[in-house]
Design a binder for these strands. Structure first.
Lengths: 231, 231
DNA sequence: CTCATGCAAGAGCAGTGCTCTCGTTTCGGG
DNA sequence: CCCGAAACGAGAGCACTGCTCTTGCATGAG
């Protein structure tokens, strides 16, 4: 526990927060590639070298933004799960998917930062691992609830995939059947495929009513996992 | 048709090709963000300003690489479709998916260029539209063959999505049922979700046997479209 | 053969990430 | 309370980047 020892320490966390805030502003406005340390410092009325007292490099600043972005989308997913407690699992699943998509559409550059191409020569520090897992954990939770309650329609698991499925299951959710866990991981990645295509412009001039399109796509993904309609 | 009028014109297309080749080398080595016009020129033994005679800007060079990447992955998909002609549609579907994934894994930075986060302030020129559609067209072709031959198990189409589905179908494949086309677009985006998660490192320490995992994921996507197993 | 055009070279501008030094301010242990 | 250590802001500077402009040379078309 690092307590705030004095005015200096307080100033440090305030300035750190201000730097992140300004960086996030520039990120939202121009994207990660155009995020400039010097511009952030300029906007904050300090000189660029002073900023290195708070973030050792531009990549470290970006990493901080990545962690925050993972936390934000994770919080959105958890909030959607909380608000739909008690509803049928398939409805909860689609609600969480829609919450993630809504966050992505509202924060395209932050979304690109975490689910787009890795920016700085692909160095994913350990700090990002836990926040990155939050959305996945929410989906696992919904599947678990369905499995323990209404039941799930387990998709077939090919023999070639069984060893891998057992391994993933042991790592991730030992209380769930491997077939379910594998379907979950696949649906998880596929969910972000549809969101990425929308955010990155691949649906341009092809899909117009994206709310409706995404809603049925997400629901179908939930059924792929084994969640039952008309719970 | 611009014929090669002389030694000068020939030199021009040769140098243009050399620039693209060197740029692709740097792209594969370091990624799009680190691709430097000056470094390309340096490696080619010319001065940086000379390079602007061939590409008006760095973005134009990137656009050329994007078009080439779309063409390469499209060619891989078409080749897989050609080699599996006559086989059951679901097998052809998975073969095409695996070909696309294999290309992506072999060329991660080029993949990131076209299916990762779009570069800042960059709006895809018209030149990229046609090449970008090639993979999709291959998948449409397989679905069409199944629809006209073995038949497809049409997924249900919610009323809320029907107008949009009809619109997309008119634009894309007027001879196919809207429910099939919508499922196709969804599966198309979801396919690239799984590939992106693998290429961008989201499966790190989670999925190990990626061949097996992807094979069943791709097959399940094919079934979502309505392709029938044991054709 | 002549002359407009294509081209390479170089200098230069504005911007970047990052390092180093140099005074100054703050804080904590003796 | 006080003094040394640590943290800090400012500035200069390095090695880059994309891009523009001018200059002089070689090529190829009329």
């Amino acid at each position: 526990m690092t307590t705030v020892r004095g005015a200096r320490a307080r100033a440090r966390i305030e300035i750190t927060a201000a730097i992140k805030a300004e960086a996030r502003t520039q990120l939202a406005a121009e994207g990660a590639a155009k995020l400039s340390l010097r511009a952030v410092a300029r906007e904050l009325g300090m000189v660029s070298s002073a900023l290195y007292r708070y973030f050792p490099s531009r990549d470290d600043l970006l990493t901080a933004l990545i962690v925050d972005a993972y936390d934000a989308v994770g919080a959105a997913a958890e909030s959607a799960a909380r608000e739909t407690a008690g509803q049928p699992s398939l409805d909860r699943w689609t609600a969480v998917c829609r919450a993630v998509r809504a966050w992505a559409v509202a924060h395209p550059h932050e979304y690109a930062l975490i689910y787009g191409s890795p920016v700085p020569g692909y160095t994913a520090p350990q700090d990002t691992n836990a926040p990155a897992a939050r959305v996945g954990l929410v989906l696992v939770g919904i599947a678990r609830e369905a499995h323990e309650g209404e039941g799930v329609a387990l998709p077939p698991l090919p023999d070639a995939l069984r060893p891998e499925a057992v391994r993933i299951t042991a790592d991730m959710a030992p209380d769930l059947p491997p077939a379910l866990v594998v379907a979950l991981v696949a649906a998880w990645s596929q969910l972000f495929g549809t969101i990425s295509f929308e955010v990155f412009g691949q649906f341009h001039r092809l899909v117009e009513d994206r709310d409706a399109f995404f809603a049925t796509a997400a629901r179908r993904l939930g059924q792929d996992v084994g969640l039952l309609p008309r719970g």
